[in-house]
Design a protein around this nucleic acid. Structure first.
Lengths: 202, 202
DNA sequence: CGAGTTGTTGACCGACGGGTCAACAACGCT
DNA sequence: AGCGTTGTTGACCCGTCGGTCAACAACTCG
């Protein structure tokens, strides 16, 4: 029954919701416009009417994924400061990141799918690179405090460099967890990390 | 001209060589049996004759990639010992791993393609998980020396845990480099890592 | 009520992919 | 020489996918 209007922009939401469902089930390479349309109980033509192309649909989906992964950081870690040393806060941050992996597994997988896709796809790459940069920036203040707390030890090392190390560790461990869940115990790995990165000697 | 025989098993090599070329150019998702056949100057039917399915061809290609990435470790690092402390040797190992990324970029990209593919594909997953395990095992002796050198500091931490941390960092940084080459200076990041992981206090 | 606008549909198109297969060619063996 | 084995070819089958489009339906505005 053609013509059944929808309250305007809600259609885009409806379609993106369907895209999330389909991608959660079949991953990025299993996502087709037809499946998304079917999941949204619409015709393929309608999806093209609202998005114009599959690429635009994917970029819309990517935004959704990024909101879930990098956006919506728990508010307390910008502060993150409080009582602990910056080193403890940053390690706590890493712990928190790794511990939420199992819960958000679906979005994490999609995040990594887009990561690899961005390797070939310029538009996706740009969005991903920005997102990764924003991700590191979210704990840059902690890294700055670390550098400040032990100026001699971190001579010639910038806070950004430290965020790269932490992000590298978190993402690498995330990738590992995605292909081999239950392969390594998160708690054991984190304790190893804490032993490798000692607290300030002061 | 059908019937032009080839010296037996050399055809498989020829086809896999072509697969490497095609995958290097178009990545995993751009690889089709037809393109591989064309690159090898054979007909598609011939590829199916020798491999049976695209999946088998991909598994063959995966072996090639793994030989390049995890196999063929420089001989000196098993020793790796020599004069330096284990901590220095392990950090040197990480440095060596990151520095070869640009040179082997093609294979590294394919390695990560297979990594993500393994997330959905059981056969690929199994091979990848084994390869990652072998990768960590290649510097396990260094991790064991680290634990031994400072028993108190690493109480309750196994050498395997340490390899997970190092592998996580290396892979995460590798993924980052693949999507954003030239995003972070490898040398800077490594100096940050070295500052974060201090030498034994002895 | 009538005309224009905005959606909506599903058939359709062209391309392409994995896989099959009948025909055929080179070689080894007896 | 004759024959079976092993390759090799390329046309072909069939499904799917992104995208288009003519037809049509609801809603709006005059």
């Amino acid at each position: 029954m053609p013509g059944a209007r929808a309250p305007e922009e809600q259609r885009r939401r409806q379609i993106l919701d369907a895209a999330v469902v389909v991608a959660g089930r079949e991953r990025l390479d299993g996502l087709t416009v037809r499946k998304v349309a079917g999941e949204a109980r619409l015709s393929p033509g309608s999806v093209f009417f609202h998005f114009g192309s599959k690429e635009a649909l994917l970029l819309g989906l990517l935004d959704r994924v990024l909101v879930e992964i990098v956006g919506r950081r728990p508010p307390e870690d910008a502060a993150g400061a409080g009582t602990a040393t910056a080193r403890d806060a940053l390690l706590g941050y890493a712990r928190q990141e790794l511990e939420r992996l199992p819960d958000e597994r679906e979005f994490v997988e999609l995040f990594f799918d887009f990561w690899v896709m961005g390797t070939r796809h310029p538009a996706v790459r740009e969005v991903m690179v920005d997102a990764l940069s924003a991700y590191r920036a979210s704990f840059l203040p902690l890294a700055e405090r670390i550098v400040a707390e032990e100026a001699e030890r971190f001579r010639g090392v910038s806070a950004e460099d430290i965020t790269h190390v932490v992000a590298g560790f978190v993402h690498g461990t995330g990738f590992q967890a995605v292909i081999d869940p239950g392969g390594a115990d998160v708690d054991d790995v984190l304790r190893a990390l804490e032993a490798l990165v000692p607290p300030p000697s002061t």
